[in-house]
Simulated assay, not measured.
Amino acid sequence: MPARADGDPLNGGEDDDSDAHRASSMHNLAGKLPLPRAHKDFSKYRFTPPGDRVVEQPDTNRLLFWTKDGQPDGYAQRRGSSVIYYNAQGQAVRVQRLTAQEMAD
Rank of each mutant, 00 (worst) to 15 (best):
A104E: 14
N28R: 13
D8E: 03
W66Y: 15
M103R: 06
Q57W: 06
L10K: 01
V83N: 06
H21N: 12
R46M: 08
L10A: 07
T48I: 14
P50N: 05
G12W: 03
L98A: 13
G51H: 07
D19W: 07
D105K: 13
P49A: 11
P72Q: 06
Q71L: 10
G90C: 13
A5Y: 15
A104V: 03
G74I: 04
R79I: 15
V54A: 05
Q101C: 13
L35W: 00
R97M: 07
V95N: 04
A20V: 12
D59N: 12
P49F: 10
R37Y: 09
K32V: 12
P58Q: 01
R78T: 14
A23I: 13
S25M: 04
M26Q: 02
K32G: 00
V55E: 07
K68D: 12
V54K: 00
R78G: 07
E14A: 13
D41H: 03
Q77C: 03
F42M: 05
D16K: 06
N28K: 08
S24G: 09
K32Y: 10
I84K: 05
L64F: 12
V54T: 10
Y85N: 02
R22W: 04
K44L: 15
F47G: 00
H39L: 11
G70L: 08
Y45C: 06
D69V: 15
T67K: 10
P50A: 14
P34H: 07
F42W: 04
G7C: 09
S25Q: 04
S25R: 04
A76G: 08
A30F: 00
K68L: 15
K68P: 05
D69E: 11
V93H: 01
R22G: 12
M1I: 15
V83S: 03
F42P: 00
D15H: 02
S82F: 00
D52P: 06
E102V: 09
Q89S: 12
P9F: 14
L10R: 00
V83P: 04
Y45L: 03
S25G: 12
A92T: 14
L33F: 05
L33Y: 11
D73L: 13
R46F: 05
I84H: 05
Y75P: 02
F42I: 03
Y75C: 12
A5G: 07
Y86L: 08
V54Q: 01
A92Y: 07
P58D: 09
R4G: 01
A88F: 00
A20K: 01
M103A: 08
Q77M: 12
F65G: 02
H21T: 15
A3Y: 00
V83T: 11
K40W: 09
F47D: 05
A92P: 05
M1G: 00
T67I: 08
G31K: 08
P72N: 09
G80K: 12
D15C: 12
Q77D: 03
V54N: 00
M1Q: 01
A3T: 07
L33P: 06
N28M: 02
S25N: 06
A38R: 04
N11Q: 13
R46Y: 09
A104H: 03
R78N: 12
D52R: 11
K44M: 15
R79Q: 15
A5M: 14
G31R: 03
Q57G: 09
Q101I: 14
Q71I: 10
L98Y: 01
K68W: 11
K32W: 14
P2V: 10
R4C: 14
R37V: 13
G74R: 01
G13A: 10
G80H: 08
R22H: 10
M103E: 13
G70Q: 06
L63C: 01
Q57A: 14
P49L: 10
F42C: 03
